[in-house]
Amino acid sequence: MDIFTVSLWGITGAAFIASIVKDKQKTFNSMKMAKGMMKNMVGQIIGILLLIGLILTFIPPEVIKSTLGESNTFISTIVSALAGSITLIPAFVAFPLVGSLVDAGASIIPAVAFLTTLTMVGLVTFPLEKREFGLKFATIRNIFSFVFAVIIALVMGVIM
């Protein structure tokens, strides 16, 4: 667990105790609500996580690495942005991977596109986002995020 997760547990624990001291019934009700939310989402989340496991088996980081290092920058940028949208690899894997490529002289444009879509665009989490915020919200947010990821990548390619 990173420090942020630990502190969130700490803050939540303190808030929970304060809540119990102030009003037992209200706390009890809100825990029932937490349970309801959990029940509502947990099936979907586990489905998503198992799907990510499948995707990573068939599109392993090595494949992504060779895509990012592709010599045609235009194609590799688009493909990298798409790969980042589909996969959800953890940052501590993504940054060293991209870092080693950039050190080896690969263009940073596909690298940046990949890093940005990796976290901001979520094709696998789309069903969950759609259920929570509606089709319109989820679709438009993901499309904008994708477009801006490519723009950010291009601008970084010009600046750096």
Binding site: S30, M37, G53, P90
Partner: peptide, 24 residues
């Protein structure tokens, strides 16, 4: 399954606390 485990552990560490703090 092995690949998924990392994410499932991450989820178990964070989601209960998210649901609790959201409700509070």
């Amino acid at each position: 399954v092995k690949n998924s485990m990392h994410y499932i552990i991450e989820m178990l560490q964070i989601m209960p606390v998210i649901f609790i703090i959201t409700s509070i």
